[in-house]
Amino acid sequence: MMKQIIKKTNSRTISKLKYLFIVAAIISYISCEDNILPEAGSIPDLTPPEAGFVATQGAGPNDEWKTYTFANLSTGATMYSWSFGDGNTSTTFEPLNTFPGEGTFTVTLIASDNLGVESTYTEVIEVVQPIATVIPDPVLVNADFNKLPKSSGSDCSCSGWINKSLGDQGESSSGNGGSDNVVKFDNNEPDHVYQEFEVTPNADYTITVVSSFKDPLNGTYPSMLEIRVLAGSGYVSNYAPTYYTNTVDFPQDGYGYTTISQVEDPTNNLLTPIMPISNPSDTSYLTNTFTFNAGNNTSVAFFMRGIGGDSSVGNFGYTSGDEEIRVDSVTITAN
């Protein structure tokens, strides 16, 4: 009887050991699988980040060439780490960086997502100072209003400056220490000067005018000097400008701008606002400056006249006022 009990006990013991072994094996298997399976609730990273950027050099008259703009082309990322190769770093999405000067710099962008996956893009930037573009000054003929021959009629300080479709020609006069060296806009007359010249598109220019007014008469019509810069797009239809070098070659009528309404059309004016020079109550020759941008024009026209008078007088719809105006020179320079 004792032997049977022992056998039964041994049988149960063996079964129990088998059960424990199987359980241990399962636990071990699960433990190993935990080491290689994703965390509970995780999903595959179907859109891993991919880094990329484009660098654009700045432009301007000073040191803007040292500053680059970085357009971020990365996809699938939420965080960005930049290194510009000059000691500067950034975590901005699209940063600016100002390099110390000319040289070669390795720019690196590390783009990462919320799962910690990273992508790296590197580009070598050659920073070189651009060669400055020299914009030539416009060429004006008889800019000092000397008394010179013209295509027809007597010599005049207005030679090279006549467009009889727009008014009467300015007259020769003396002033500012010389003889026959200024152009005069006589009182109560529609006197003007007009000349076309080449410009560089989108360039900025400064106009310098040296002029003098007679003493104010305190009348009904005080004189003012008006200056306009007219776009080549407003020239008479199918007109191709010619830039003459001698005053005798200039036409006197029927070219460029042919009506005052074209001149006064705001869309044709590059010098805005139009701010006439008023009588300064000083008969000295004074300097006034104006600036304009050439826009998309390769040719423009300079137009100057006396205004302020009785506009019903004459055939042009304007006249100068009660005081005579004299202009000694016009200078136009590229900025």
Rank of each mutant, 00 (worst) to 15 (best):
I14C: 11
Y19G: 12
A25N: 10
A25W: 09
I30T: 08
E39G: 14
G41Q: 08
A51F: 05
G52S: 04
F53K: 08
V54Q: 06
T56G: 02
T67Q: 05
T78E: 13
M79S: 15
S81E: 08
G85D: 00
T89G: 04
T92V: 08
F93W: 09
E94Y: 07
P95V: 01
F99T: 06
F105P: 04
V107L: 06
T108D: 05
I110V: 13
G116R: 06
G116A: 04
T122Q: 09
E126S: 15
V128F: 11
V128P: 10
L140F: 02
D144S: 13
P149M: 01
D155G: 05
S157F: 03
C158V: 11
S159H: 09
G167I: 03
D168Y: 11
E171H: 08
D180H: 05
D180V: 03
V199D: 04
A203D: 03
A203I: 07
D204S: 08
Y205W: 10
V209R: 09
D215I: 09
P216L: 13
T220N: 10
S223M: 02
S223G: 08
L225D: 05
N238K: 01
Y239K: 14
T242D: 07
D253N: 12
G256T: 01
T258L: 09
I260Q: 01
S261T: 14
Q262S: 15
E264T: 14
L271N: 02
I274C: 15
P276D: 07
S281M: 12
V300S: 06
F302Y: 11
G308D: 06
G321W: 05
E324S: 13
T333Q: 15
N335A: 14
